[in-house]
């Protein structure tokens, strides 16, 4: 698309979003004891931040149409690696 056109509003929104989410994570998680809910919050914040950073800084907001073929398989494969290592190695120790 016409990524030459600066989109200052979105940039401001995304940067502020990442920063606020990052700083909010500190008091929020410091007050919580480890629990699935805490893990969920942290994962959710990471996910949001990564989406915002990708869309804003890496221009994926404009270029995702031409780049999905590079990005999607990589993330699927990364998920395979992450997921498939889990049960076996954990069971190995938990026996």
């Amino acid at each position: 698309m016409d990524e030459g056109k600066p989109d200052n509003q979105f940039t401001l929104f995304a940067t502020a979003g990442i920063l606020i989410l990052g700083t909010l994570m500190l008091p929020l998680t410091a007050t919580m004891s480890p629990s699935p809910a805490r893990l969920g919050i942290i994962s959710g914040v990471i996910f949001l931040q990564v989406i915002l950073a990708g869309a804003n800084f890496m221009h994926l907001r404009h270029e995702r149409r031409s780049l999905w073929a590079v990005i999607l398989p990589t993330f699927i494969l990364g998920g395979v690696l992450l997921f498939a290592l889990m049960p076996d190695t954990i069971l190995e120790w938990a026996k």
Partner: peptide
């Protein structure tokens, strides 16, 4: 930006979890 993005994931893993 990618290095930055990796830090966004690394930071909670090392400093928060």
């Amino acid at each position: 930006h990618f290095v930055d993005l990796v830090w966004l994931i690394l930071y909670p893993i090392i400093y928060i979890l």
